[in-house]
Design a protein around this nucleic acid. Structure first.
Length: 574
RNA sequence: GCCUCCGUAGCUCAGUGGAUAGAGCACCGGACUUCUAAUCCGAUGGUCGCAGGUUCGAAUCCUGCCGGGGGCGCCA
């Protein structure tokens, strides 16, 4: 099924070719959603742009085009309005047909593109540290993008690029051993605390610093005892991360883990190959790649530090190795990195060097999904009053607590386990939606009160709209499969909203901007609520009743699948 | 200093070179013997940071300025 825009564009294109010649039909005809309801469903300003080239008035051109426009099966006679706009209003029977097609299709008519293997890098917490609010965006955005890309037919490979390697582990392991721990006797919160105290000790105690550095050498050299402790740290961390993922509804498990340590053995090869390619320069003892177009603060060339002066490797080298693995071993056609916007320059450099080295062929696309920082109410990066990071679980606890209060406040009849389960889904859904609804790139303020609110563009609002539609359909008892009548404006508005779903999902797959899907689902939910007010369903006369039920079912399906793509549970009762 | 992102309603934010710039919240006025009112209907609210430029047409593209965030060699 083509998008309606595509359909109208094709028809318009033949009219342009007939009336003005094929030369003019080649341009982008710009059929867009109407900016105002009185302009119908779609509009184009093409005649305004053709006025110059054709040497005629926009309105004349519009009238000539409309004369030859064959769209009878799709919309009412197109109107020439304003300075030379052509407005399209879809026919109710066409809208009904579209809704029915969506209703019949398991994938809701979301088009499947040319299948690609897409590697999505997201979440990437650090071993021995609790996941905190800073991991929320990468985890949730990445999860949604992976879901959406898979839904449109791509072969998605999730990669959790765990921070599981580096000098800090020497410090932590040395501290643990000196304090009599074996690495398995502490949970993640305990490890997190130990990490902080080890850090303090490292800075205050010169003797410890020396032993910590020696421990790094042991770890990197593969010392058995040291490695054993390290493995326990990783295992403990993964178990805790998994709990958070399950609770958040994130589709990410241990099979998706490919941490920094995995690329450890590849790092010398990365250096060798870059050296052989003549891409590295020695500078102050380090091996650097100086790429054209990158400069530092004083205007000198900005290096990518592939090997540090002490012989160690930084994350530049690790990211290069990971990129190479993803292209060569995972056979990626597209690499998506869901990582903080502050790493933009880093990724530009890594991609540029990989292209120069021939590790990133032209056919492989790269996307850095760069998102902004989560801020506290004070407008500064979200921290506790004492300046510590906020564990993700405590946020989810708070959200769930508020969701429970919300259910009680709204007189929910749910009790016991069902009540708790629902509160959990509402709380998590609120946090996820509150994150996803924001545009990428910019910072946003984490305001739990707004996220868990019943009003407005929130997760609970969408879940409620869904639950309500399920409830109505259940009462109706299964009748109503086909939309046949769309007489009321509220019915048409809802039908039109439903038909926008395939385009909204496709837009997210293309632009990697989940907030577009949020906006669309919110539109469907509000149209559904208005429809309830204006159009009685169960008490309506037989044919109207059946048609309205089908429309309702279509909206319910869109909300259910849409929420699923956002990783939010489409509840049946609230 | 250079690079980059941002500045849109009181607040939080959408916005693809097109018509009178949109949502949500808040505020104000209505609608509950319900299909779950967690809702709906309506009203108020704007020099799109400022100034130029390109264009038939600019929140959108270009330049400059003002204000803010972020980044800019051995942390990741």
């Amino acid at each position: 099924m083509d998008f309606v825009e595509t359909l109208l564009t094709d028809r318009l294109r033949s009219a342009v070719a007939t009336v003005l010649g094929p030369g003019h039909a080649a341009r982008d005809l710009q059929v867009r959603s109407a900016t105002r309801p009185e302009f119908g469903h779609y509009q184009t300003s093409l005649p305004l742009r053709l006025a110059g080239p054709v040497a005629d008035s926009p309105r004349r051109i519009a009238e000539r085009l409309v004369e030859r426009l064959d769209v009878e099966d799709v919309c009412l006679p197109p109107a020439v309005q304003g300075a030379g706009f052509i407005n399209f209003t879809l026919r109710p029977d066409f809208l009904a047909r579209r809704v029915n097609e969506i209703l019949r299709d398991a994938a809701l008519c979301v088009p499947r593109g040319e299948p690609q293997r897409v590697v999505v890098d997201f979440s990437s917490p650090n071993v021995a540290k609790q996941m905190h609010v800073g991991h929320l965006r990468s985890t949730v955005l990445g999860d949604v993008l992976a879901r959406v890309l898979a839904f449109v037919g791509h072969d998605v490979v999730r990669q959790n690029h765990l921070g599981d390697w580096g000098t800090q582990f020497g410090m932590l392991i040395e501290d643990l051993l000196e304090e009599g721990h074996d690495g398995a006797d502490l949970d993640l919160a305990g490890l997190d605390a130990a990490y902080r105290s080890a850090r303090t000790r490292f800075e205050a105690d010169a003797g410890f610093a020396v032993r910590a550095r020696a421990r790094v050498v042991l770890l990197q050299g593969g010392d058995r005892g040291t490695l054993a402790v390290w493995r326990r740290l990783v295992a403990t961390s993964l178990t805790a991360f998994d709990e958070v993922y399950v609770r958040l509804g994130v589709e990410l498990d241990e099979h998706d883990v490919a941490g920094e340590s995995r690329y450890n053995a590849d790092l010398p090869r990365v250096v060798d190959d870059l050296l052989a390619a003549g891409l590295l320069t020695e500078s102050a003892g380090a091996l650097c790649a100086f790429l054209p177009g990158f400069t530092t603060r004083d205007g000198s060339p900005l290096p990518l530090l592939v090997r540090k002066a002490d012989g160690g490797f930084g994350y530049d080298a690790t990211d290069l190795a990971a990129l190479r693995y993803r292209v060569e071993e995972l056979r990626a056609d597209r690499l998506v990195y869901v990582v903080d916007v502050r790493q933009s320059l880093h990724f530009e450099q890594v991609f540029a060097l990989a292209r120069a080295a021939g590790w990133l062929p032209e056919r492989v696309a790269t996307d850095h999904v760069a998102f902004g920082t989560v801020l506290g109410e004070d407008g500064k990066p979200f921290k506790t009053r004492t300046g510590a990071t906020v564990p993700l679980v405590s946020l989810l606890d708070a959200a769930q607590e508020r969701a429970t209060a919300l259910l009680d406040d709204r007189g929910s009849t749910l009790q016991g386990a069902a009540r708790e389960e629902t509160a959990r889904a509402v709380g998590v859904g609120a946090v996820r939606y509150g994150d996803l609804v924001n545009g990428l790139g910019r910072d946003y303020v984490f305001a739990l009160d707004r996220m868990v609110a019943m009003d407005g563009n929130t997760g609970p609002y969408l879940q409620y709209a869904h639950a309500r539609s399920v409830s109505l359909l259940a009462r109706a008892g299964g009748s109503g499969d086909v939309v046949t009548l769309l007489r009321e404006p509220a019915e048409r508005r809802l039908a039109f909203a439903v038909t926008g779903f395939p385009g909204a999902v496709a837009a997210v797959a293309e632009t990697l901007q989940p907030h577009r899907l949020c906006a669309h689902l919110h539109q469907v939910a509000t149209a559904l609520s208005s429809f309830y007010e204006a159009c009685p369903v169960l008490s309506a006369e037989a044919e109207v009743r059946a048609s309205r039920l089908a429309l309702c079912r279509a909206a319910q399906r869109v909300l259910a699948v849409g929420l699923e793509l956002l990783g939010i549970r489409a509840l049946e009762r609230m």
